[in-house]
């Protein structure tokens, strides 16, 4: 464990806290992409199958359960719970996620670490996580302006993988046989997708944390 990875996990947890607060206290999922939340649920449920046999630390196992539970709860609330479900707009949030899931599944089959079923599913989850934010970013583009809490949510989510990039650099230089090309590639793509958002987020928050983010 190193500071970058710890801060990355904390940023990821923060993104869950912000989103759960927004949809439970604000009683609205406006501006939140259910498609992205569904993709995250698929990512965590497929990646953490090893919860039952790969016990690397209590910290890891605990957070795996937390991430599966939170992502499932978010999807449940936005899909089924009133009044949140009435604030979700299927016309706006209509990114064809099958065009994300399909290629990631093929990539997971072809490019993985050990050619076992779990490794293929694991690689699929890594590739899918890299592109899971796309429906959310498309929704924000359509709306032009980003509600305050939503902007903090997306920023925390982008920071999490950005901090993981630093963690991988740190581990590469401090550990002798550390090699994880799959997550390095996917994590770089994932963080790259946020760069445009981060630019507008920084520009808008310079004048004060609660100003809305405007996307062109």
């Amino acid at each position: 464990m190193n500071i970058f990875r710890f801060l990355g996990d904390m940023s990821h947890i923060l993104s869950f806290v912000i989103l759960l607060l927004k949809i439970t206290q604000g009683k609205s999922a406006a501006g939140i992409s259910l498609r992205t939340q569904e993709l995250y649920m698929i990512v965590f449920c497929s990646r953490y199958l090893d919860l039952f046999w790969n016990f690397s630390s209590l910290y890891n196992s605990f957070l795996k359960v937390v991430f599966i539970a939170c992502s499932s709860a978010i999807v449940y609330i936005i899909r089924f719970k009133s009044p949140q479900k009435d604030t979700w707009n299927p016309e706006l949030d209509n990114f064809p996620i099958q065009y994300l899931i399909g290629p990631c599944a093929v990539a997971g089959l072809l490019i993985n670490q050990d050619w076992t079923p779990f490794e293929m599913i694991w690689a699929f989850s890594i590739y899918l996580e890299a592109v899971a934010i796309l429906p959310q970013l498309f929704l924000l583009q359509k709306q032009g302006e980003v509600e305050n809490l939503t902007s903090h949510y997306v920023a925390a989510l982008g920071a999490y993988r950005g901090l993981y990039l630093m963690n991988w650099v740190y581990r590469y230089f401090t550990e002798d046989d550390y090699l994880q090309r799959i997550v390095w590639f996917a994590g770089t793509v994932q963080t790259g997708l946020y760069i445009d958002f981060f630019y507008h987020y920084y520009q808008s928050k310079r004048g004060g944390l609660s100003r809305p983010v405007k996307l062109p």
């Binding site: 990875r5 990821h12 090893d50 690397s56 630390s57 890891n60 090699l179 997550v183």
Partner: peptide, 10 residues
């Protein structure tokens, strides 16, 4: 060799 056995990251 990729250290795939020990997946110690989330």
């Amino acid at each position: 060799k990729e250290r795939s056995r020990l997946k110690d990251e989330l």
